[in-house]
Simulated scan of single mutants.
Amino acid sequence: MSDGAAFTIDEANGGRRLALSGNYLVSTIGRIDTDLRAVDEPLQEIDLSAVREIDTVGAWIALSLSRKTGGEIVGASDRATRLIEALSATDDSGPLEPERLPVFTRVASATGARVAAAQRGTVGAVAFVGQFIAAVGMLIRHPRRFRTKAFVRQMELVGVDALGIIGLMSFLIGIVIAQQGAVQLQQFGAETLTVNLVGRITMRELGVLMTAIMVAGRSGSAFAAQLGTMKLTEEVDAMRTIGISPMEALVVPRVLAVTVMMVLLGFYASCVAIVGGAVIGELSLGIPFGSFLARIKDVVPTYDLYVGLVKAPVFGLIVGMTGCYQGLKVEGNSEQVGLKTTNAVVFAIFTVIVLDAFFAVFFTNVGWA
């Protein structure tokens, strides 16, 4: 005897009769659901006498067929009768789609929700910065509480492990700047100024900026994912329960590590980009490799190096703080980990670019142009 659901249609008492048989359960009705929905001719009765087991889904199918075809339900067991009577009180004639509000109402509602979310986010970010400052102050008062091993480990992950990808990226950027700059400068017979272009733009802007963007995508996202997973698995709450400050143990080492390593990585990226420009100078412009590098010292002002070294720790602080803040905001489910990780990368890159524009205007006004 099959445990599945089945049905037949035959002639009885001058009318058509639909006979259901088997087990009409949510686990068995799926394979005949399409065929049952295709039954739309008028019926005299719907016979449930051969139905062995039935649940709410099976009762709803029988009731829906009765309403659609006008057939009378007969032969129902006590359980089927109770379920059908309970379902009979429901009304399935309501709209299948929700009411769509006017466009002005929807725009105003969405704008208000975003403004409220921005206000809550600003308050949360300021509170997080305050907690970070308090944690740093506590570690200054009690330096033995600083987790040196975690700090060194994060410096390795953020800095040493990133040397390869950042070096390759910077080398290619130097090649692109030198090649495209030389093409334009050749129109004025000034291709030798490619050295000035590569040296100044990499030391002052692109070396640090592109490194910050790479670190945001690589380490900022890792911070958000790591802390988000720990928050989701309640490891952060467990640390608080046993008296360990998550800010001191998790956030401070990561933020300090990325702040320190951004200075070194930014300078390293600028140097590698200059080497890339020197390679193009040797191959395409007729400028000897050694002469290209030697001239860098003459055409790049010292304050360009200082500009990059000033911006690097600020960018690193932004990347680290954004990643940790978004990670600790995770709550609810695993989908939040991906969402907050994406937010960490987007917000960090956006903030870095905005600050870079601010620094460009500031240093120009103070004479370091």
Rank of each mutant, 00 (worst) to 15 (best):
L206M: 14
A357D: 14
A116R: 04
L172F: 14
L309P: 01
A225L: 01
I173G: 08
L168P: 09
F289H: 05
A50H: 06
I201M: 15
V251L: 03
V107N: 06
I280C: 11
L168W: 05
E53V: 00
F267R: 02
R17H: 12
A360D: 09
I175R: 03
S291G: 13
L20S: 07
G14I: 00
Y24R: 02
T194D: 10
L43M: 14
A224N: 08
C271A: 14
A59Y: 04
M169G: 09
G15H: 11
R141K: 10
M261G: 12
S93D: 14
L256M: 14
V123R: 10
Y303C: 00
A216K: 01
A108I: 07
G327L: 04
N23F: 02
E191N: 04
L157V: 13
A369H: 07
T148H: 09
D3N: 15
L25S: 03
F363A: 08
P143R: 02
L355H: 10
G94T: 03
L87R: 02
L65R: 02
R82G: 10
K68N: 15
G130F: 05
G323S: 03
G199K: 00
R218W: 07
V275E: 11
L63Q: 08
A108V: 08
G207A: 11
R67L: 11
G167D: 11
T148G: 11
V307H: 04
V299W: 09
I166E: 09
I242S: 09
K231H: 04
A162C: 03
E11L: 05
A269G: 08
R37N: 15
A273I: 09
F171T: 06
S88A: 12
P301R: 01
L168S: 12
S334E: 15
L139Y: 07
T122R: 05
K297G: 07
T148S: 12
I173D: 11
L206Y: 05
V319S: 03
E235P: 00
I353K: 01
A12I: 05
A6M: 03
V272S: 10
A117H: 02
V158S: 12
K329A: 15
T148A: 13
